[in-house]
Design a protein around this nucleic acid. Structure first.
Length: 287
DNA sequence: ATCTCTGGGATAAGACTGAA
DNA sequence: TTCAGTCTTATCCCAGAGAT
């Protein structure tokens, strides 16, 4: 695969200059103050389940769970620590929050327990212990206890950087060295990157190597660009790329023409490439 | 003839595990 | 460290049954 940095810069420039669209995580549960500890817990625990499922519905289910007095405790680390797994499982199912009926509640509880036991019930203590340095936070998420991850689901290659971005964009926490954090590559970011030809060529195999190329592509492409008067970072492209694919590149994109349903109005239509783009747990690309 | 419903099969998806 | 395989369930698609 070839990484076209020049093209990446042009695409990034256009994406950064367009108004941001709403993301599934932007809506707060009623009664929660932006930037509060409750908000931070809401974002932190919900994002841990933000994979292999419809993101819009996940965040909806999580809001409902928070707004229900009977299940709100699921967002408090100390109560998670004290509550038996069976009860947590039952309550996470009530509003459709748990999709994988065993794994989701088990790891949700585990994350809560870690914040209870290590960080006095408040993830902000964890962030301060990392000196609010984004790369340190990512690295510390990998910590294990007797071989068991302390932050399961939060520590992954996609979720980790996604959490960092949400800390900045949603919770409003300023972190250092954000330029060192890779873009969280999910199917949408991958499809948008490939459909715009920023990474292109032939690929058939495990998607991991391809995703590495995509991360490099955006690291390189944002260099020298500005957004809101500061230097742009790769994370700034997560939201626009995600929406680009969600609303376009992945909806009935035609391999032969490269066009999708919103082609005519898309600001990036001049960058559409033709050819196969298939992203599953394997990737098949020929653009 | 046309609809609604049901169930089976395939598919998608990212983290995790364990083997190499 | 890398790679292949496992886990898990909503959703889509389609065939066939049954209802109108």
């Amino acid at each position: 695969m070839r990484i076209d940095v020049k093209r990446g810069q042009e695409v990034a420039k256009i994406l950064l200059s367009t108004n941001s669209n709403e993301m599934p995580e932007d809506l707060l549960p009623t009664g929660v103050a932006k930037g509060s500890r409750e908000h931070l817990m809401f974002i932190t625990l919900t994002v841990s389940l933000d994979y292999i499922r419809d993101a819009v519905r996940l965040w909806e289910a999580s809001r409902e769970t928070f707004e229900d007095q009977k299940t709100r405790y699921l967002f408090d680390p100390t109560t998670l620590f004290e509550t038996p797994l069976e009860k947590i499982t039952e309550d996470m199912t009530a509003h459709g929050l748990a999709q994988r009926q065993h794994k989701d509640p088990f790891y949700w509880k585990k994350i809560g327990e870690t914040f209870h036991e290590k960080w006095k019930n408040d993830p902000r203590n964890f962030l301060y212990s990392c000196n609010l340095d984004a790369p340190t936070i990512l690295q510390q998420l990998k910590e294990r206890d007797n071989g068991h991850p302390l932050y399961p689901f939060l520590r992954g290659e996609k979720i980790g950087p996604l959490w960092i971005r949400m800390l900045r964009d949603n919770v409003g926490i300023e972190l250092k060295n954000m330029d060192k954090i890779p873009i969280p590559v999910d199917t949408h970011v991958a499809r948008a990157t490939l459909a715009t030809g920023v990474v292109r060529g032939r690929y058939d195999g495990n998607s991991r190597n391809l995703f590495n190329d995509i991360r490099s592509a955006w690291f390189e492409s944002v260099k020298g660009l500005k957004v809101n008067g500061r230097s742009a970072v790769a994370l700034d492209l997560d939201e626009p790329l995600w929406n680009l694919s969600k609303n376009g590149c992945s909806i009935h994109r035609d391999n032969a023409t490269g066009k999708c349903e919103v082609y005519e109005t898309c600001k990036l239509k001049n960058y559409c490439v033709t050819g196969t783009i298939v992203i599953n747990n394997k990737a098949e690309v020929n653009t």
